[in-house]
Simulated scan of single mutants.
Amino acid sequence: MTPLHELVNSIGFTIPQTMNADPNSLDDLCGKLMPLYETSSSKFPEHSDLELLLGLLSVHHDRLLHQLNAQRDALVAMQEVIDQSLDRSHSRKFKAPVIIEFWLTMHLWVYLQGMLRMDYSLANDYAAEAGKMLAPMTDKNLDQLRVEWNQTYYVGRDAKQNNNSFLKQVSGSLRKLLK
C-alpha cells in the first residue's frame, strides 16, 4: 500500500456504494497519483499531507475534466451503443475507465473539501459542473450526480467531526492517566 493510499484510508474515505465501482479503483487512482504526490511532498515540505492531497486532487480533477471534454462525443456515443445493445442491468457495468476515474476523483475531492471545512457553495458548483459533463455518459442525470457528490461532501464534514471527537476523547483519557 502506497503512502498516498494510507493517507486516503486515514481520513476515512471509502468508495461510495452509489458508484458501483470496483474496489480496486481506489488503489488504481492512488497508484496513478503517487508519483505526483511524492514530487509535491518533496517540493513543498511546508504543506500538510491534507493540503498536498487537496492540491493533487485539484490538479487531477482539472486534467480529467479536460480529457473528458476532449473525448466527450466519443464517450457519449460509446455509452449509447452499450445502452442500446445491452439490458440496463448489464449496461450499467460498462463505463470507460476515464469516467470511473473522474467520478471517483470527484468523490474523494469533495470529501476532502468537506473534511477541511471548505466553502460548500464552491463544492456544489464543482459538483454541478461535473454532473453536467458526466450525466450523458452515465445512467444518472445531472442532479443525481450533484446530490451524490454533495452527500460525499457532508460525509467528509462528519468524518472531520468524528475524528476530532475521537482525538478529544483519547487526549482526555491520556490526561487523566498522566495525573
Rank of each mutant, 00 (worst) to 15 (best):
Pro3Glu: 09
Leu4Val: 05
Leu7Trp: 01
Asn9Thr: 15
Asn20Glu: 08
Asn20Cys: 02
Cys30Ile: 07
Cys30Glu: 10
Lys32Asn: 07
Pro35Phe: 03
Leu36Ile: 08
Ser40Gln: 10
Ser41Arg: 13
Ser42Val: 15
Glu46Asn: 02
His47Leu: 13
Leu52Cys: 04
Leu54Ala: 05
Gly55Gln: 13
Leu56Ala: 12
Ser58Phe: 05
Val59His: 05
Asp62Asn: 14
Leu65Val: 07
Leu65Ile: 07
Gln67Tyr: 09
Ala70Trp: 01
Ala70Arg: 10
Gln71Asn: 09
Arg72Val: 05
Arg72Trp: 12
Asp73Ile: 15
Ala74Ser: 09
Val76Gln: 03
Val76Phe: 10
Gln79His: 15
Val81Lys: 14
Ile82His: 01
Arg88Trp: 06
Arg88Ile: 14
Ser89Lys: 12
Arg92Ser: 10
Lys93Ala: 04
Ala96Met: 12
Pro97Val: 05
Val98Trp: 00
Val98Gly: 01
Phe102Trp: 02
Trp103Met: 03
Leu104Cys: 04
Thr105Gly: 03
His107Gln: 11
Trp109Glu: 03
Val110Phe: 02
Tyr111Phe: 14
Arg117Val: 11
Asp119Lys: 13
Tyr120Phe: 15
Leu122Asp: 11
Glu129Gln: 14
Glu129Ser: 03
Glu129Phe: 06
Met133Pro: 00
Leu134Phe: 11
Leu134Lys: 00
Leu134Thr: 08
Pro136Ala: 07
Lys140Glu: 01
Asn141Glu: 13
Val147Tyr: 01
Val147Arg: 08
Asn150Val: 09
Tyr153His: 01
Tyr153Cys: 04
Tyr153Leu: 08
Tyr154Met: 09
Tyr154Ala: 01
Arg157Leu: 06
Asp158Ala: 02
Lys160Asp: 08
Asn162Ile: 04
Ser165Gly: 04
Leu167His: 05
Leu167Ile: 09
Gln169Pro: 00
Leu174Arg: 03
Arg175Glu: 13
Lys176Asn: 10
Lys176Leu: 05
Lys179Ile: 13
